[in-house]
Design a protein around this nucleic acid. Sequence first.
RNA 1: CGCGGGGUAGAGCAGUCCGGUAGCUUGCCAGGCUCAUAACCUGAAGGUCGGAGGUUCAAAUCCUCCCCCCGCAACCA
Length: 563
Amino acid sequence: MKKQLITSALLYVNGLPHLGHLVGCLLPADICARFQRQRGRETLFICGTDEHGTVSEVGAAQEKMPVADYCKKYHDRHADLYRRFNLSFDFFGRTSSDQNKEITYRIFHKLDENGLIEEKTTKQVYSPDDDRYLPDSYVIGTCPYCGYDRAKGDQCENCTKVLDPTDLIHPRSVLSGSSNIEIRETKHLFLNLPKMESELSNWIETKKGVWPDIAYSIAKKWLKEGLRERGITRDLKWGFTVPKAGFENKVFYVWFDAPIGYIGITKEWADAVPGRSWEEWWLNPDNVNHIEFMGKDNIPYHTISFPATLRGTREGWTEVGFLKGMNYLNFAGGKFSKSAHRGIFLDDALTEFPVDYWRYWLIANAPESDDASFTFDHFAATVNKDLNDVLGNFINRVLKMTSNNFGTVIPPMGPVTDAETDLYAALDTLVADYARYMENLEFRKAMATLREIWVSGNNYIAKTEPWKVVKTDKAYAGTILNTALNLIRLFAQMAAPVMPETAEKMLALVGEPADFVWPTEKMATYLTTLPAGRAFLPSDPLFSKITPERLEELKVKYKETES
RNA sequence: CGCGGGGUAGAGCAGUCCGGUAGCUUGCCAGGCUCAUAACCUGAAGGUCGGAGGUUCAAAUCCUCCCCCCGCAACCA
């Protein structure tokens, strides 16, 4: 079995993340990492913040802070939120680290040696009043086609025409509002993607039917349109200085050093403890399976530019083996918006409900095949039904029935009947299905199966009717409840990748340590494991329902009804 | 003709590659049970599979055209 290298897209450090960011890459990556570890595979889960670029410089200026301090402040806030969401990174690093600089330079020099770096002169908008070059979208003016007066320099939002900043009437800086702008010629370095087009095309073709459709088809789309040379430098101050004569006052473009950040962050991880090796993960393609998670907007960079960057060095870097691309999660029909603060942000989410409510809902409704929508109605319905009625109530009824009839100890297991063997057979199949879906990263199907696994518990209880049996055949009632308590252990292990906190509580209820280990035995064995006589904990219900009144409050508070 | 994704019961989705009387969850209705968080279990109703043509003994599935929604379009990361 290869080692599993798992990366989530690096979120831009500016601003704070919302549920869309969580479900688009961070959470599925975490669930994958937890599942891989639970199966006993050597796993490294890497993530971090992406920190370079214009947006950071502008954000820092707005908060009147040095850019480095600004990035550190937001990096720490991201890290804190993700820790509270139980994201199990082996290392959460930064693209601005010295380690990333070292790897970025190494890769750049190799690409240059191999003749893949070219110089070109381009025209850029310069704003003397802002004392900086402006990205096209930072120039606004009147659209020459439709007259919209806030058209951006790359595209008019009103009529959707693609524009150049020079097309705009009365162009001005979005930062200062100054219309004193000029077009300057400036030299930049480009990565020669056309030289690598056929190589990339052959490689992508091997992913047909292997990667999710959205990943394959977006990559194909770019290839079909023909690759262009891609600028990898910018006229900014915040970033890695370009180590090439004549370019010392420029920095690398974020999209050059950001994906290299996966490697740089792995080196941060390795440097933190003696004996760790980042090369065993990144220069070891035969023994490492790299799984990447990202939103669909990231797919071109991870299927085209980043693979080209690594391949162009001819150094044998570990390349992506499976790319899980996700669609977007919308909020009540519209978009989540960082700038307008529309939607549910992670800090708010944590104040409203326990983390596992969010983790379960998000992954059970992950936008895998199409964009999905968050609504409080759907959220409450799922939490109330799946977590409270199906899982929580099962645990509660079993614990109460047992303690009412046998005290708070696990009753002995006696001879089994058809009801038990039917249960074993059903669960052997369901657990295998569930494992397969998790293995294939088909999260919605996996969660539907997880739910079926929980339902099988209620089914078993309904069929065997222990509340009746206990009056006539106490020994068999003990067998039923023993089995049911074993089911709690099984359900905890099954839920562990998705709801680690709840899974830990469930294991504690039946006196098991918080070790997440995937069952390898058949159910006939696995469900007779708990020792009779062991004390278990009486417990309040693990979940509580969202009331209609609470639901209405939430809709108002988060302005769900506005679109 | 810019490109991609999507359009399947009230809602959320699977099925489409490899054609064979349309499936899951939820909601709604009825019954059962009464250990449990008014919960659990069973059953019923509910769809001309976006539209129109075509191929076929047979089309949600294959082909052609059209309509609607979402996203992307390389300097917003």
